[in-house]
Design a protein around this nucleic acid. Sequence first.
RNA 1: GCGCCCGUAGCUCAGUUGGAUAGAGCACAAACCUUCUAAGUUUGGGGCCCCAGGUUCGAAUCCUGGCGGGCGCACCA
Length: 542
Amino acid sequence: MKQKLEKLLSQAIQKLNLPPVPIVLELPKQKGHGDLATPAAFLLAGPAKKSPRDVAELIVEKLKPLPSWIEKAEVAGPGFVNFTIHHCAYFETLGNIFKQKGKFGSSRWGEGKKIILEFVSANPTGPLNVVSARAAAVGDTLANILKAAGFKPHREFYVNDVGHQIDLFTQSLEARRREARGEEAAIPEGGYQGEYLKDLAQKITRGDFRSEGLKAMVAWQKKSLKNFGVVFDRWLHQSALMKGPKFSKTLNVLQKKGHLYEQEGALFFRATAFGDDKDRVVRKSGGEYSYFASDIVYHADKFARKFDRAIDLFGPDHHGYVARTQAGVQALGFDPKRLTILIVQQVNLVRGGKVVKMSKRAGEMITMDDLLEEVGKDAGRFFFLMRSGNTHLDFDLDLAKKHSLDNPVFYVQYAHARIASVFRKAREYKIKFRPAAARADFFDLPEEKELVKRLLEYPEVLLRAAKELEPHGLAFYCLDLAKQFQSYYSRAKEDPRYRVVDPDNLPRAQTKLYLLKNIQIVLQNALGLMGISAPERMEGKE
RNA sequence: GCGCCCGUAGCUCAGUUGGAUAGAGCACAAACCUUCUAAGUUUGGGGCCCCAGGUUCGAAUCCUGGCGGGCGCACCA
């Protein structure tokens, strides 16, 4: 419908001998401004040497005679052209949604390109925290969104199982074991104090502490993520990457291109040549390679594995690494645009209106497992997805676990469940839903047209989320759609024309069931992408 | 000091890439239950879009300079 109108408009502009301009069609915010509007006349006012209003008038003239699906086209305001679309045309579009079902909203924008998303990638030294949970929700949902937009996404977790932190972890674990045997032992400076190491130290009976300890931590993180609905395609261990031939090969490439130099016994990468503020150490003077070295190799490996694009989600404490990582990729000769680094910002847990203070040292931590247990997967994911990833998030624990409709995730799920409930009611009345029995002439209430307009927005919302790599638009869309539906539904109390299940008027009932089914499809699609369940009925009333 | 992010209703935040009179939820005030789920809906008040310049038909949105907040600036990962 939109495309058809765009075409008509560009034809009209051509007939006026005006230069082609990109046609923008937007949904007017104001009621009374029609269903679609274009500001095209503003862009053409200059070349035409006329006022925007006059140009708009000319365009409307040239559009005549209007096709039957356009009710009217009028000039308004300083030069907008507003179109009112016949409600039958909206009814027709429902057929598309109904036919496409779970595919409605998908596109081929990504052209089947392979895209790797690396996220969470927390150190295997302890349980996952709430920022990791946020990264998991955002990363996983982005992968789903990109898939719907025509990419082939791959989820990867990079396990940093090498280096100083791992040494500390091993030493802490050993200290806990000696402690358990009644020996005197101290956790090393900067080591890991958490209680979980006490349990772990007792469980490990054979093999070496380092590898068994890491194995247990990775398994734990894997389990936490699975409970949150996030399953990675691959867990890549840094140690494996460093053992392979790729490591020296990649560094040789940098060496040959002259991007490395030695100074004071250390090997430096000339990151400043690519926009970073400092050159970065690749091999320390002690002979060990830095974390950064392995990260460059990892990114080279991503592109060597034929991924067209790579997306990294970094935690708030790593944003100083963005410039050097981009620099590394560029120095290796890859187009830096192929790598996008997103920052997942800090999470403040709020309880009773106050930020929950956490201290890692004192062991006062709320982990991802704690959060999941307290608020559940659905609320957890929805709350993380309500905000853009790169802004700080206040996570209201009290609200998230409320089983009432103040809770946005419940509100959306309730809309879905309510539709399911209407269908159950229809069966009680022996009304068998037949989509083909829906009729345009019973699709006549203004709210119904508005609802379909909302449904038609969904593909654009989804595509936009994919382009911007921002899932929060989807969450807001669900809320808007749910609200619009609830409002429509509620009118049945005062006005029988809004009642769906009316055994005395079967065509009307069928038409409304058809509309509701389409709303349900879109809600299911959106919730599905976010990894949130779409329940048939709401339970657990408090 | 340098870099990145942020500043919109009392609070938490949207704002369709520069469009019409800036929106939602919560909170506050009021109205509606012989119902397809009131676990709901409707209405109302509430704004120097941090400040000052600039760009143009038009700015919350873009540019410059400030102010305020967060984070980062290791031969740690």
